[in-house]
Amino acid sequence: MRRIHFLMALMVVCSFLTVLHGHNAMAQSVAEFYKGKTIAVLVGSRAGSAFDIEARTIIPFVEKYTGAKCLVFDMAAGGGLQARNKLFESKPDGLTIMLSENAPKLITASLFKNEGVRYTWNKFVPLGKIIYSPSTFNVSKKLGYKTPKDLVGVNFICGTSAPFFEPLFAEALGWNGMKLVPGLSVNERALAMRRGEIQATVGNVITATQNADIMDPIVASSRDEALFPGVPDVGEVVMPGKGKWANYMDAADTVMFWAITTPGVPKDRAAFMESVLRKTFEDPGYRPALSKVGEIPPPKFVTAARLVEMMNAFAAMSPKEIEEMEQVINKKYIKQ
């Protein structure tokens, strides 16, 4: 009887070791696949843009943990549409990626069926997120407004490069008097505010700190006491019956700056690249590298699974809700 028990225990141990060896071999084979390869890093904006700088800051760590060489391809045509189409249509081998992307614009362009879109947004494979900056709604100090309620019933002009967060803030907080002027760069918006041509704009922590003499953040897409002490997030001050707009903003804020790859990439390669991003996030040299270019990491590594959760928030939208969102973002608040 003891001999039988011994043999059974031995079989269990052998089975466990076989499975463990199989997992190790699989991980090893994926790691070997990337060594010496070339990874195409697509950027949906011009060279020198924030997304380009972010990608180039991450790349040395990706090369360190993959043994591959990364080549950057800046593809600004169509406001990033060219890069997104290219990624969607690339070979699904895990060798074409985007390391920091404007996910809200990617998603809504597909949802709204914009001209030239050849991708289906929720087929992209998320890899994780290691860049972070909540969006804040900033108002001119000349106005003297300190809280979101101060803007209710007020007519004011908000500058933007392309509308997204601005109309979501307005819809959630009851700012029916806001009018958007699109097509303005970050520097153009700061100059316009100094001249009194606009009274508000949305930006990140860099926008708020570099222009602290002329603007105050009064509400954020997500609360961060370290970055914006005392500034509430939109979910805390949302108007009754407008909660879904705060939820959309939370989902968009979470996926902003995500890293993604081509649909159909083998799961083991996607998981390997996620582990590379996690190692990058945990690397002692990563935060100093980000700091040099004025960027910060999220409080913790944002997993692919977490990004999928936020993707589901958009995927669950009905055709009527999509039509309503398009109306709010692209039409309702645009200054005529």
Rank of each mutant, 00 (worst) to 15 (best):
K37F: 03
K37Y: 02
K37S: 07
K37P: 03
K37H: 04
T38L: 09
T38D: 11
I39S: 01
I39W: 04
I39N: 02
I39K: 00
A40C: 10
A40Q: 15
A40E: 15
A40P: 03
V41M: 05
V41H: 02
L42P: 05
L42H: 10
L42S: 09
V43E: 06
V43A: 00
V43D: 06
V43K: 04
G44D: 09
G44E: 06
G44H: 01
S45V: 11
S45A: 14
S45P: 03
R46L: 06
R46S: 11
A47W: 05
A47L: 12
G48V: 01
G48Q: 00
S49R: 04
S49P: 02
A50M: 08
A50P: 00
A50E: 01
F51N: 06
D52K: 07
D52L: 01
D52E: 03
I53S: 06
E54N: 10
E54T: 01
A55R: 05
R56A: 10
R56G: 03
R56F: 00
R56Q: 12
R56T: 07
T57A: 12
T57L: 06
I59T: 10
P60H: 07
F61R: 10
F61N: 06
V62K: 08
V62S: 03
V62D: 00
E63R: 14
E63S: 05
K64N: 00
K64L: 07
K64V: 08
K64G: 03
Y65F: 13
Y65H: 07
T66F: 04
T66C: 11
T66G: 13
T66V: 04
G67F: 02
G67N: 06
G67E: 03
G67M: 01
G67H: 05
A68H: 06
A68Y: 03
C70G: 08
L71G: 12
V72A: 07
F73R: 15
D74R: 14
D74Q: 09
D74W: 08
D74N: 15
D74C: 15
M75D: 05
A76E: 15
A77H: 14
G78M: 11
G78I: 15
G79A: 11
G80H: 06
L81H: 03
L81A: 09
Q82S: 12
A83I: 04
R84W: 15
N85Q: 14
N85I: 13
N85P: 10
K86R: 14
K86F: 14
F88G: 03
E89C: 08
